[in-house]
Nucleic acid binder design. Structure first.
Ligand SMILES: [Mn+2]
Ligand SMILES: [Mn+2]
Ligand SMILES: [Zn+2]
Ligand SMILES: [Zn+2]
Lengths: 155, 155
DNA sequence: TTCGCAGATAGGAATTATTATCAAGAGGTC
DNA sequence: GACCTCTTGATAATAATTCCTATCTGCGAA
């Protein structure tokens, strides 16, 4: 979720989406699920299951890592969150909200969101018009972030 | 590597790139490395380390899976190959050759190459102009491939 | 050519990330 | 409050990748 969207207003619209998905699919809205969802929604760094678990332990000391994994898988199955495509060993997640794209620092692996309406509105090349049913498209931009560039120069 | 590029001419230009990278970096060109590279270069399906190992065992029965993993990591470090970004548990690889983009079937997970010069030549949005040093950008398009759509209808 | 050795390999053991199993716990309904 | 079902936490299991180490080899130097 992008910084500009992290308002209380937005949080409640996400919570409504969660309640709605529960209502439709019969999935129970347990305290664990609510907290996992809220923590992921407030995160801007595309955390892993383990990172989420760490962050949640203060509020829910008995929450098991397995429950975090199971909950994330459940949410992903219902389209509430996305498991990101990365080359890292740990999976990373984000809530499925506005369409956006990713900047990846190949040094520190930080993943930043950005918007690109020009890209979103463009079609797809002729070459792949008959491949099948196209559902969405994303751009990923790789490079070295300013923080890492600065480290290179000073350290 | 894309179909249209899999000619003998192209293979030898890739092998030259490999020899050159070895010369420059002091990396030894062992039979194992040569075979891993050639197998990956001739593959059009973005194989995993394990798939490459299976394919190579006929030619090199003593080749260990660990060597395939180490070799792929070495090649990636030298920029000869790319480890793909995916949400799957196994890593997938391709030789770093012409710039291209990926079509991903969310049903069968097949990854197809396509070209998109219009995208390649476009700049990046103003929003991220000061993020750091940008090195490359890629598009990923998700959907359901024709094969899987057909299965849905008949099966 | 041969030599010497830093760097590479094979194979098994270890580690890391994730998923499965299962007994116990809790929400929703009557 | 009993009952049914879904969910949880603890533990065990699995899958993917990396580490260990004894042995081997590509390749620069002589
Ligand atoms: Mn994001
Ligand atoms: Mn490719
Ligand atoms: Zn960085
Ligand atoms: Zn498919």
């Amino acid at each position: 979720m992008t910084k500009s969207m992290s308002s209380d207003y937005s949080d409640s619209h996400l919570l409504r989406a969660l309640r709605e998905a529960c209502r439709i699919s019969g999935m129970r809205l347990t305290p664990q699920r609510l907290e996992v969802y809220r923590e992921l929604a407030r995160s801007e760094d595309h955390p892993s299951a383990e990172e989420l678990h760490q962050r949640l332990l203060e509020r829910m000391p008995s929450l098991s890592l397995d429950t975090v994994y199971r909950t994330l898988a459940t949410f992903a199955r219902h389209g509430l969150i996305h498991k990101l495509d990365t080359a890292e060993s740990q999976g990373r997640f984000e809530v499925a909200d506005d369409t956006h794209h990713h900047l990846v620092c190949s040094r520190c692996k930080e993943i930043m969101d950005f918007h690109w309406p020009g890209f979103d509105q463009s079609g797809v090349p002729e070459e792949i018009a008959h491949w099948g049913r196209i559902e969405r498209k994303n751009a990923v931009i790789y490079g070295i972030c300013n923080k890492c560039l600065k480290k290179d120069r000073t350290g």
